[in-house]
Amino acid sequence: MSSDKTELSRAGKTILTDTDVSRVVDRIAHQILEKTEGARDTVLFGIPTRGVPLAKRLAARIHAFEGIDVPVGILDVTLYRDDLRLKAARALGPTDVPPGGVDGHRVILVDDVLFSGRTVRAALDALGDLGRPSSVQLAVLVDRGHRELPIRADYVGKNIPTALSESVRVTLAEIDGTDEVKLYGSDA
């Protein structure tokens, strides 16, 4: 590999800029309004870490567009993951259920990157312990492919075909100080 490619691989290839991320969040918020009858009986649950600020942004944009307050919760999936034995121990995060719970509501799980589907499977298991939603949907900023489970997103900001050797890194201002999506790896 040439030194130029090595440097590019380390620096990453920018897929979404801060302006792009804002535009994508707006588009997903509009899609949610269209597909959910104006977000009626809808609750957003952010999956930590970056799904939480994304869920809050979606709720804020829905409010800005339609004046509708969509409840936002946090769904920690740590204890429901099937890779606990394979990775280093991680701290448990909070699960915060909005007033009114999930029973009978449409729940939209929000995450930054959809990859194998295993985090979403864990989220479905965790959600089942909180109650019985009327339906569950999934919103992601990036879908990079390579599913290991039969899971698909209902709302996708950007599809990014990747190689297994590549990685997608989402940074958000609330956590990282900037909004950006970058692709890293041998071909980036």
Score class of each variant (00 low, 15 high):
Ala60Asn: 09
Ser3Trp: 12
Arg132Tyr: 11
Arg85Trp: 13
Asp111Arg: 00
Gly104Asp: 04
Leu183Ile: 07
Val25Glu: 09
Val170Arg: 03
Asp187Leu: 12
Val107Ala: 02
Arg132Cys: 03
Gly51Tyr: 01
Ile151His: 06
Thr49Asn: 14
Ser116Gln: 04
Arg169Val: 15
Asp26His: 10
Asp154Thr: 08
Val120His: 01
Ala91Cys: 12
Val24Leu: 05
Val21His: 03
Asp20Leu: 02
Gly157His: 02
Arg50Trp: 03
Arg152Ile: 10
Ala55Glu: 01
Thr78Ile: 14
Ser167Arg: 13
Gly104His: 05
Arg121Leu: 07
Ile68Ala: 12
Ala29Gln: 04
Ala173Asn: 12
Leu124Pro: 07
Val168Asn: 06
Ser116Ile: 06
Thr36Ile: 11
Glu7Tyr: 12
Ala126Trp: 06
Val77Ser: 04
Val110Tyr: 00
Arg106Trp: 05
Leu44Lys: 01
His105Tyr: 07
Gly128Ile: 09
Ile28Leu: 12
Asp187Val: 10
Ala91Pro: 12
Met1Glu: 09
Asp41Val: 06
Val113Met: 09
Gly157Trp: 00
Ala173Val: 13
Arg90Gln: 15
Arg85Asn: 15
Thr42Pro: 07
Gly100Thr: 04
Leu114Gln: 01
Ile175Leu: 15
Val52His: 00
Gly128Ser: 10
Ser135Glu: 15
His30Pro: 09
Pro71Val: 06
Ser3Pro: 07
Thr95Asn: 01
Ala173His: 12
Arg57Phe: 04
Thr49His: 09
Asp112Tyr: 02
Leu164Ala: 13
Thr36Cys: 12
Asp125Glu: 13
Lys182Ile: 08
Ile62Phe: 04
Val170Pro: 02
Asp143Cys: 12
Thr49Cys: 12
His30Glu: 14
Leu54Phe: 03
Lys35Val: 12
Gly145Arg: 10
Leu138Ala: 03
Ala55Trp: 00
Pro48Arg: 05
Gly73Ala: 08
Thr6Arg: 11
Arg81Trp: 08
Ala39Leu: 10
Pro48Glu: 08
Ala173Tyr: 11
Val140Trp: 01
Ala153Gly: 02
Ala39Gln: 06
Val170Met: 07
Ala188Glu: 01
Leu58Glu: 04
Asn159Trp: 11
Leu54Trp: 00
Thr42Gln: 03
Gly131Thr: 07
Val136Thr: 13
Asp83Trp: 06
Asp187Glu: 13
Asp125Phe: 13
Pro161His: 10
Thr14Trp: 03
Thr178Cys: 14
Gly38Leu: 13
Ala163Lys: 11
Thr171His: 09
Thr95Ala: 04
Ser116Val: 06
Val97Asn: 02
Leu124Cys: 07
Arg50Thr: 09
Thr19Ala: 15
Val21Pro: 05
Val77Thr: 11
Lys182Asn: 10
Gly67Val: 12
Leu79Ala: 14
Leu138Ile: 11
Glu34Arg: 13
Val110Leu: 01
Arg81Ile: 14
Ser135Thr: 14
His30Asp: 10
Ala126Gln: 03
His105Lys: 15
Val102Ala: 00
